[in-house]
Simulated scan of single mutants.
Amino acid sequence: MVRPFVLWLIWQNECTRQRYHIGNLLHDGDKYVFYYEQSRKRRGLFEALENGYQPHLAFRDMGRKYVSNRLFGPFERRLPDRRRPDFLEILRTYGLPRDCTDMDLLRATGGKLATDSYEFVAPIYVSGNHFDFDFYVAGWRYYEGDRVIQYLKVGDEVHFRLEPENRQDSKAVEVLTNKGCKLGYIPAFYSEFMFNLIQNNGRYMARIESIHFEAFPQRKVNISVYGEFLPSYQTQDLDMLHQISLEVI
């Protein structure tokens, strides 16, 4: 089965700065599908609703699966205009080829606008007992990232450290260089997954996938993670992850 191109839609509460996985955008090469994420128990749609989230004006029905032959207008408007004189420079900044798709561009840029609190991110893909995902380091500006970024290289291994005493997030996971410098955190919508995996002795490898020296702090360093579950591993989000990864549009 060819897995569809999937992105998670994230909403951030502007007051608390907490982020929630509230929807999924899928593309199989033919149709685009968007629906709200109602399976996730932690940092999902229902928790977001309890913390002030209101459905997107273009997608008011939270129980509907929206289908389109082209990228939905509200998401397409989040992409840089391909007619811009500096469009090729934008592609170079994100390491994208000229023939990249709209989904490639949405994934690389996050589709962020100054006028709202939405962002697209890569999902956690699960196949059998293996998984992979990538993320931009959260909290970059507050730790040692800018001090050591000149010494980082693509392919460098990084390490994760649990921080259960964190008052903001008991499932927080720190991101450290191989020399122990703290770059920041795994974003919260991934952290419970990795926290539980590490606690259950799951195997993983994490490396620097890309470095963007001139990017905004939240898009400076991208980390790729690959790993596998042990047979005893269980998490409340695992069924949801399988559903997203294997869904056929």
Rank of each mutant, 00 (worst) to 15 (best):
V2S: 00
P4E: 05
P4R: 03
P4A: 09
F5M: 04
E14C: 00
T16I: 11
T16E: 11
R17S: 10
H21E: 08
L26W: 02
L26Q: 03
L26Y: 09
H27L: 02
D28N: 04
G29A: 08
Y32G: 01
V33M: 12
Y35P: 02
Y35W: 13
Y36I: 08
E37F: 08
Q38N: 08
S39H: 09
R40K: 15
K41C: 06
K41P: 01
F46K: 03
E47H: 07
E47A: 07
E47P: 11
L49E: 02
E50Y: 05
Q54A: 07
P55I: 14
P55A: 10
L57D: 02
M62Q: 07
M62E: 03
Y66S: 08
V67D: 00
N69T: 03
R70T: 05
F72S: 01
R78N: 12
R78P: 04
R82Q: 06
R83N: 12
L88V: 01
R92S: 11
G95F: 08
L96H: 01
R98P: 04
C100K: 02
M103A: 02
M103P: 01
L105W: 11
L105G: 04
R107N: 05
A108P: 05
T109M: 05
G111A: 09
K112V: 09
D116E: 02
S117T: 06
I124D: 09
Y125C: 03
F133S: 07
A138R: 03
Y142C: 01
E144A: 09
G145W: 04
D146V: 06
I149P: 01
L152A: 04
D156Y: 06
D156R: 04
E157C: 11
V158M: 01
H159V: 08
H159Y: 14
L162N: 09
E165H: 13
R167E: 12
R167W: 11
S170F: 13
A172P: 05
K179N: 09
K179Y: 10
G184H: 10
Y185K: 06
I186C: 07
A188K: 10
F189H: 07
E192S: 15
F195L: 15
I198F: 12
N200P: 01
Y204Q: 14
M205N: 15
A206D: 10
I211N: 09
H212I: 07
E214V: 08
A215R: 10
F216G: 09
F216A: 15
Q218M: 07
S224M: 11
V225W: 11
E228C: 11
F229G: 04
L230R: 13
S232E: 12
Y233F: 14
Q236P: 09
L238D: 08
D239E: 12
M240Q: 11
L241F: 13
I244D: 00
S245H: 06
I249D: 00
